Measured scan of single mutants.
Amino acid sequence: MIINNLKLIREKKKISQSELAALLEVSRQTINGIEKNKYNPSLQLALKIAYYLNTPLEDIFQWQ
């Protein structure tokens, strides 16, 4: 199972779901689904999230 800290990191950086979704060219619902662990992002999307949040990938997504 993958645990993610996306919501915590996104809120710490004061970025809304809508703003992050626009940067990543995905829907706000996609961001919401990832934050709620409804599904895991593709590797490409995970890397883009880490890039736009300027945060190491392993700080956002962790195996458990």
Rank of each mutant, 00 (worst) to 15 (best):
V26E: 05
L43K: 14
R10L: 05
A46N: 02
L53V: 04
E11R: 10
Q29T: 09
V26I: 11
L53G: 00
N54W: 05
V26G: 02
S27Q: 08
K36S: 14
S42F: 03
Q29K: 13
S16A: 08
N37T: 05
Y51M: 12
M1G: 05
E19P: 02
Q64E: 13
P41E: 01
I2S: 10
V26N: 02
S27K: 09
Q64K: 10
K7Q: 14
A21D: 02
P41N: 01
Y52V: 15
I31R: 01
L20V: 03
S27A: 07
S42H: 06
T55R: 05
L20P: 00
Y51L: 12
S16R: 08
E11Q: 09
I60Y: 01
I3W: 07
N32M: 15
T30N: 05
T30G: 03
Q17T: 11
T30D: 11
I15Y: 11
S27P: 13
I15W: 07
E11V: 11
K14N: 13
I60G: 01
N40R: 09
L6I: 04
N32C: 08
E19C: 07
Q17A: 09
I9S: 04
S16Q: 07
L23H: 13
I49M: 07
I49N: 00
Q44L: 10
S27M: 03
L57D: 02
N32K: 13
W63C: 06
S16T: 13
P41V: 09
N37H: 10
W63L: 06
I3C: 08
N37Q: 08
E25L: 12
N37F: 08
Y39D: 06
P56Y: 04
K14R: 14
A46Y: 03
S18C: 09
A50K: 03
L8P: 11
L53N: 00
R10H: 01
K13N: 13
T30Y: 14
L23W: 14
I2H: 09
I49H: 00
S42R: 07
A22D: 13
K13A: 14
A50C: 07
D59N: 10
N40F: 07
W63V: 05
K13S: 10
I3N: 06
I34L: 07
T55V: 09
L24T: 14
S18V: 14
M1I: 12
E58G: 13
K38E: 15
K48A: 08
I9A: 07
I49R: 00
L8Q: 12
L45R: 02
L23E: 10
S42I: 04
A22C: 08
L23G: 11
I60A: 02
K13D: 03
A50Q: 05
Q17H: 04
L57E: 02
I31G: 00
L24N: 03
E35K: 00
I60T: 03
K7G: 07
Q64L: 07
Y52F: 13
I15Q: 05
S42P: 15
T30I: 13
N37Y: 07
E25T: 10
I2Y: 12
P56D: 10
K12L: 13
I31D: 00
E25N: 14
I31W: 02
G33P: 01
Q62N: 06
D59M: 10
K38S: 15
A46T: 05
Y39N: 09
Q29I: 11
A46K: 07
E11N: 12
L45P: 01
S16W: 03
Q62E: 10
A46V: 05
R10V: 03
E35N: 01
E11K: 08
K7I: 05
I60M: 07
L6H: 02
M1R: 04
N40Y: 07
I34A: 01
Q64C: 09
L6Y: 00
N5Q: 06
I34H: 01
L6D: 00
K14T: 06
R10C: 04
K48W: 05
L45M: 11
L57F: 06
E58H: 13
P56A: 08
P56L: 04
Q62Y: 06
L57M: 12
N40W: 06
L45H: 04
A46C: 07
Q17S: 06
K48M: 10
E25V: 09
N32Q: 06
V26D: 03
G33L: 13
M1W: 06
W63P: 05
N32I: 15
D59H: 13
K38C: 10
I15H: 04
D59I: 07
T55H: 08
A46E: 02
L45Y: 03
D59W: 08
W63D: 04
K13E: 12
K7M: 10
E35I: 02
Y51G: 08
A22S: 12
N5V: 03
L45Q: 07
N37S: 09
I3A: 08
D59E: 15
Q17G: 05
S18P: 08
Q64A: 13
Y52G: 06
Q64H: 11
Q29E: 15
L23K: 12
I49Y: 00
Y52S: 08
L20Q: 00
K38L: 14
R10D: 01
I49V: 06
R10F: 02
Q29L: 13
L53M: 07
S18H: 12
L57R: 04
Q29P: 11
V26Q: 04
Q44M: 09
Q64P: 13
S27V: 03
S16V: 04
N54T: 10
L53P: 00
N5D: 04
Q62R: 12
F61T: 01
E25S: 13
N4Q: 04
Q29W: 14
S42N: 12
I3M: 09
S27N: 12
N5M: 04
L47D: 08
I31E: 01
Q44I: 09
L47I: 14
L20Y: 01
A22L: 11
Q64S: 13
Y51Q: 15
A21L: 01
L57G: 02
W63A: 04
T55I: 06
L23A: 15
E11W: 06
N4A: 03
N37V: 04
F61Y: 03
R28M: 15
T30L: 15
I31P: 00
K36F: 11
Q64T: 14
I34V: 06
A46Q: 08
Q17Y: 04
L6G: 00
R28Q: 15
Q64M: 07
I15L: 14
Q29Y: 12
M1Q: 05
P56S: 06
I49Q: 00
L8I: 14
S27H: 08
K13G: 05
L43S: 09
K38H: 14
L45S: 03
Y51V: 10
A50E: 04
T55K: 06
S18N: 10
K14L: 12
K36V: 11
A50W: 02
Y51H: 09
E19I: 06
K13T: 07
N5H: 08
L24A: 10
N4K: 02
E25W: 07
Q44D: 15
I15A: 03
K38F: 12
Y52K: 07
L20S: 01
Y39G: 06
L43C: 10
N40Q: 10
S18K: 10
I9P: 01
